[in-house]
Design a protein around this nucleic acid. Sequence first.
DNA 1: GGAATAGTGTCTGTGAGACACTATTAG
DNA 2: CTAATAGTGTCTCACAGACACTATTCC
Lengths: 225, 225
Amino acid sequence: MEYRDSHGRTLEEYPRPSVAVDTAVLTVPPGGELTVVLIDGRRLPGTFLHQGERLQDAVLRSLREKAAIVGLRPQQLRVFDATDRDDRGWVISVAHLDVVPVDRLANAALVPVAELPPLLYDHSHIVELAVATLRDEYAAAPDPRGLLPEPFTLRALHRLHQSVAGRELQRDTFRRGVLEQLVATGEKETGGVGKPAQLFGVRSSHRARRYVARPDMSEYTDDAR
Amino acid sequence: MEYRDSHGRTLEEYPRPSVAVDTAVLTVPPGGELTVVLIDGRRLPGTFLHQGERLQDAVLRSLREKAAIVGLRPQQLRVFDATDRDDRGWVISVAHLDVVPVDRLANAALVPVAELPPLLYDHSHIVELAVATLRDEYAAAPDPRGLLPEPFTLRALHRLHQSVAGRELQRDTFRRGVLEQLVATGEKETGGVGKPAQLFGVRSSHRARRYVARPDMSEYTDDAR
DNA sequence: GGAATAGTGTCTGTGAGACACTATTAG
DNA sequence: CTAATAGTGTCTCACAGACACTATTCC
């Protein structure tokens, strides 16, 4: 019943690496900057892939165990595979990004990515790659990661985008650019100072991305090879 | 000397997956369409990662052994990790893209991606992802994969871009768009019919990409984690 | 009214797309 | 000359950036 190759051996008779996952969990605290979750202030949460486990699930488990975080939708970035990258042995790591609203982060240690200290291993590179990926996404859709509860004002969305981008975005240009991706609820925000702002939701046709640079692979359930 | 975890066990005492690589090798035959290398007409070349081997090297080895191809610069696409994707056992696969001038392909079986037959496993998805990645790259630089020997005419570059894009590209718009990324050699093409065309090389500042959507990770030697 | 915020009119520059024109060669 | 290809002038449209204006609310 068991598979054997042309030498009569099973797969287990050949050397195999340990496979790890390491994850940059990014968020934007209300009114704050883009931040990342760190463990011990110098590394990202990670773990080893268990048998019968998907990479996504290993990520979610590592976030739960190492940082008491309820993750959402971890996304692969790339594999780090240098042969000497881990002194414990032969370990390759699949770097991930997850974006999580701040209220799911409990008391995890958040550090603004603009003030990132030197991290262990290649974790600084992972954060860089994660930030660039998130910026691409937010340049292409109003709130692809659902960081803002709907409905929201354009003011709140504008601030979120500025936090993600790490720079000022012109108010009127931003408004005109994003407006067609939104749908007005007809309601107005109450309780603030100044002219009440309209409330908006994300138009269903733009929940994901405005422009699809590459095909969205998330539809591939990947359950059969 | 050997590493032991808090349970006194080595990494080898835990179950580990076999790690495979599968690669979409793309090329454009002179004057032809964008094509992919297939084995048996229904799958991509691939192999298992060996101990002490980088993913890139496993890819190059698989191309050499399975398709008699001298690969160039394999690039990671993503990891496929469905637990049942391979009936031989627990196998995850790192999908790759490599782009190789047609003269290095010897007598490999080339199939136009526009007429791709159904492939085994998830290999159709890998080809799709590889094609989209290559189109992004060629939309951003004159010849990032070096498919065209320098110096070249704008006519030849135009045809290459149309082959990669899989559609017509307006001649004058293309010319104006790409011209500043090139440098004229001062020479002219000889032997053709019609007005002789200028010869160009790629300006050194545009060898890679015109626009960097995400940071180019190739600079990270990744030799230390 | 004054402060604060929401929302818009409009000018400018840039660049893609499109069309048609001119330029230079071989034969 | 004609055929064929190289290369350009120019119009249009869309849109980002920028500035300043108007609109509506709370106090």
